[in-house]
């Protein structure tokens, strides 16, 4: 009885003096959050966590559900959002591959700027790991070994446009060492290749490495981060270890379909900002050792241009043909 009465009062209040936000746009049905991986992929997990937080922290008047549009290294999901032109109830969760794939694939026609950039959410640092019984105690040891046996050592990772390979390219250029890069479709296979001793090194997310370090299977040589991560106080960053290469973060953020009105952009921008202020979000990024990377729509558009310019240069340097 009380609850219903309260709701009535709230409704009445809302009718008389609506809060600032209610004047503008609000989603009218379940919001679709589009990701480019299948269930269980990195973006999918983050998206499902966001959907739970949006409900728990009451950030949306409606429910949010995750829609998987895997394939084409992000291109399929980006194209799906582009088709949803003007749709008020669909947004996407983009990552670095959404930005990089259009640089090298002619068919991946949709760049972030063909959609509506909303906000950047997180930057994910990474660590460089080897198997626990590997002879390399520092990253310099690995570079020395690579210098002595050019092309003999191997790194497991994703596609050649992935962050893993970009880091390798930067390090190869700055040190003159050369080692092989072997692409595996899933994170699990990359780790299996390292633990099985089939490759020598990998770039891995700190949280993923954590359990293997605790079990004594892996050792971390350096961090790809501006500052040392709380979980790895004794491991130097690449810069501290003497390798002054730009830190390449894995970036994740929110994007909306093209052609939505300004008040929709503002709503989603505000949603993203409020999301990153909630205790659930703070805990989530601390647990996963992400960095808060919030930027609003205007900053994100600027970041996009800088990021792709730098990426294009790195890819060209590596002999990868760019098309945009």
């Amino acid at each position: 009885m009380n609850v219903r009465y309260g709701a009535l009062v709230l409704a009445a209040l809302a009718g008389v003096s609506p809060p600032a936000l209610a004047q503008g746009f609000k989603p009218t049905r379940t919001v679709d959050l589009v990701v480019h991986t299948g269930p269980g992929g990195g973006s999918d997990v983050l998206a499902r966590a966001i959907a739970v937080m949006a409900e728990k922290e009451k950030l949306l008047p409606v429910r949010m559900q995750v829609v998987n549009k895997p394939g084409g290294l992000g291109a399929v999901a980006a194209a799906y959002l582009a088709e949803k032109r003007g749709d008020p109830n669909t947004i996407g969760l983009f990552t670095g591959v959404w930005l990089q794939t259009p640089l090298v694939s002619a068919e991946a026609r949709i760049t972030l700027l063909d959609l509506t950039p909303i906000a950047r959410l997180v930057l994910e640092p990474a660590v460089i790991a080897v198997k626990a019984d590997a002879p390399y105690k520092t990253f310099a040891d690995f570079i020395d070994a690579a210098n002595k046996n050019p092309g003999q050592l191997k790194q497991s990772g994703g596609s050649n446009t992935s962050r893993d390979n970009v880091v390798r390219q930067l390090l190869q250029k700055s040190t003159g060492a050369r080692w092989a890069f072997i692409s595996f479709p899933g994170g699990g296979e990359r780790i299996a290749a390292l633990l099985g001793g089939h490759v020598d090194i990998m770039v891995i997310e700190p949280e993923e490495a954590g359990e293997h370090i605790r079990a004594g299977n892996m050792r971390v040589l350096a961090q790809i981060s501006e500052h040392r991560l709380p979980a790895f106080p004794n491991v130097p960053t690449l810069k501290e270890a003497g390798f002054d290469v730009p830190v390449v973060p894995q970036v994740r953020g929110v994007v909306a379909p093209p052609g939505i009105p300004k008040e929709n952009v503002e709503f989603w921008e505000d949603f993203s900002r409020r999301l990153t202020r909630t205790p659930s979000w703070r805990k989530y990024i601390a647990d996963n050792q992400f960095e808060d990377g919030y930027q609003n729509a205007a900053e994100l558009a600027k970041f996009y241009v800088e990021f792709t310019d730098r990426m294009r240069a790195i890819l060209k340097d590596a002999g990868v043909k760019t098309v945009r």
Binding site: G71, Q100, V104, S105, A106, A108, S159, N160, S183, V320
Partner: peptide, 8 residues
């Protein structure tokens, strides 16, 4: 899309 080169 080819995994290795990201080309189609």
């Amino acid at each position: 899309t080819d995994l290795f080169s990201a080309t189609s």
